[in-house]
């Protein structure tokens, strides 16, 4: 399967999925760690994909969203942003609203 199709299946098959470096217990980068903390603070359940474990995903996800950095958050198939946007949405309360299916 083409990597873009694989990524599409991952993001559309999960409610909330964070592409990050490392995992929730051992984030391998400060921005990924911050993204995990934000989602945990929202009390949301989420899945993670460790891009360091798969080079195809690591490069493919940047093409998929036209976004050159990791982490990347997707909610119900939609790209939400990186850790800066997550922090702003968290502080404004919008992230919690988006995480809760209406």
């Amino acid at each position: 399967m083409d990597i873009q199709e694989r990524i599409k299946e991952i993001v559309e098959g999960s409610g909330v999925v964070l592409f990050m470096k490392g995992n929730t217990d051992f984030p391998q980068c400060g921005f990924s760690g911050r993204a995990v903390q934000i989602l945990q603070a929202c009390g949301s359940e989420f899945e993670t994909v460790d891009v360091l474990a798969d080079d195809q995903i690591r490069e493919g996800i940047k093409v998929y969203s036209n976004w050159p950095t990791i982490p990347q958050l997707y909610i119900r198939g939609e790209f939400v942003g990186g850790s800066d946007i997550m922090l702003e949405l968290y502080q404004s309360g919008d992230l919690k609203d988006q995480l809760t299916p209406s």
């Binding site: 921005f31 036209n66 976004w67 050159p68 790209f79 942003g81 800066d84 946007i85 702003e88 949405l89």
Partner: peptide
């Protein structure tokens, strides 16, 4: 916000891959 950040990333282009390791904006 996503589009705004994409515009900045686009301005930086390949510099994001080669020269800049960590950028908050």
């Amino acid at each position: 916000m996503v589009v705004q950040h994409q515009m900045v990333y686009a301005a930086l282009g390949d510099k994001m891959k080669a020269d800049i390791h960590a950028l908050s904006m």
